[in-house]
Simulated assay, not measured.
Amino acid sequence: MGSNNSRPFSALAQTLSSTTLEQRVEHLDQEDQIELDPDQLLRECEEVLQSRPARPHRNLICPKDAGSYCHQLGPSVRIMQWNILAQALGEGKDGFIRCPLEALNWKERKYLILEEILTYRPDIVCLQEVDHYYDTFQPIMASLGYHGSFLAKPWSPCLDVEKNNGPDGCALFYRHSRFSLQTSICLRLSAMMIPTNQVAIVQILNCRLTGQQLCVAVTHLKARSGWEKLRSAQGADLLQRLRSITSRRGEGSHEQSARTNPLVVCGDFNADPSEDVYRRFRSSPLGLDSAYKLLSTDGQTEPPYTTWKIRPTGESCSTLDYIWYTRDALRVDCLLDIPTEEQIGPDRLPSFHYPSDHLSLLCDVSFRAEP
């Protein structure tokens, strides 16, 4: 590293390697003017991870009809959805029997997570199972030009793990140079009017390039089989609240119809496409569609998996993660493909070469021009 840049990156290394939250916060207070070069930080990640196998190579794929729309506003917006695996759960509760504990060491695993984000440079990042928000992701993402929000689960299972780093929850980051924040809403999802342990963050963002508004939501629904009805009720609650949040009354004083802001909903739904909550989103009056169906030959089929893990109860290969978008207001320009079984490896996820049991999803969307 050149002498002009060495101080910020040595400060980052100290921030990441500090042993207590108090030390990290104190250090960041002293270095609150640090701005990180993403290219330099990516190289630093690669240096730290040089003893590990490389992450699976993934290509950006353009859907078949991506070039058929001629009317759009501004360049694409890149959106990442990812359940990054809470550190406390990975080490203490999830039981990945084919993943060595050494592969889950936070001192290196955090660099794998950052490397994934830095490789694709998303404008919006939606994360679940974040239990190192304040000491790692918030300061680093802020130094990279992102504004972040975090909402913890009311009763996080991370708190049951000895030496945990606090509760896990959802986080939403947006690039400040691209968007300004109009509205931010934190939701605790309900089922039949009873509050549950699952949450969502909803933000209305103003695009600085187009003047368009974009509503983005991130959530993480109830896990495990046997909870399908609860997930369906949580999804219904979220959809109802999104309809209220995104509605915009018409300009005319006598106009009674309502329009809605373009909407993107990212999440680990813990539900495969056969579940009722998936059908709720697909048939919602909000006009949502699942972006990753566009990778399929017919444009109607979800990927075969977004998570693949081996636990004491057996092997689990499922599609649980989604990026939903308003199909009439947004178009999907490209998507990050899904690694093959060979790329994932026989021990599945997580592993030395991938930090989570869930794959990151990423797509570029653009605003369709309004009629």
Score class of each variant (00 low, 15 high):
H27K: 10
R98T: 14
F9C: 06
W82P: 01
A258D: 06
S156G: 07
E302G: 08
I61W: 09
I124F: 08
P350V: 08
T297W: 00
W106C: 00
R259Q: 03
S51C: 00
Q138M: 04
I84V: 15
I194W: 06
R7G: 05
G148D: 06
L209E: 15
S149V: 11
G235W: 05
A329M: 15
K222N: 05
L60T: 13
Y69C: 08
A217S: 13
A88D: 13
L16Y: 01
E315N: 05
H220Q: 09
S274D: 13
L214H: 03
E108Q: 15
H57M: 12
P56K: 07
S247V: 11
E129Q: 03
S17P: 03
L42K: 09
R280H: 09
A171F: 02
L320E: 03
G169F: 12
C266N: 11
L187V: 02
T19D: 12
H71A: 11
D237M: 03
A271L: 01
N105C: 06
L89N: 03
A66K: 03
I61K: 07
I204R: 06
Q87D: 14
G250T: 10
L320G: 01
A54V: 10
R248D: 06
I84A: 10
L101I: 06
D135W: 01
S247L: 04
W106L: 01
C70I: 13
E31K: 12
R248Q: 15
D94Y: 15
T219G: 01
Q14K: 09
P195L: 08
L230G: 00
R348T: 12
Q30Y: 11
N164K: 10
D65T: 11
K153I: 06
R188C: 07
L349K: 01
P63K: 08
W155M: 03
S18H: 04
E115S: 15
F269Q: 06
N83S: 10
P38S: 01
Q33Y: 04
T119F: 04
P75M: 00
R7N: 11
P100K: 07
L361P: 03
R7S: 09
F179G: 05
C363L: 11
T340F: 09
L230H: 01
D32V: 10
P75G: 05
A291Q: 06
E255G: 04
F352G: 00
E47R: 14
S232V: 04
P56N: 08
C363Q: 13
I344K: 03
R109F: 07
L73K: 15
L16F: 14
E370F: 07
Y146T: 05
Q343V: 00
S76Y: 05
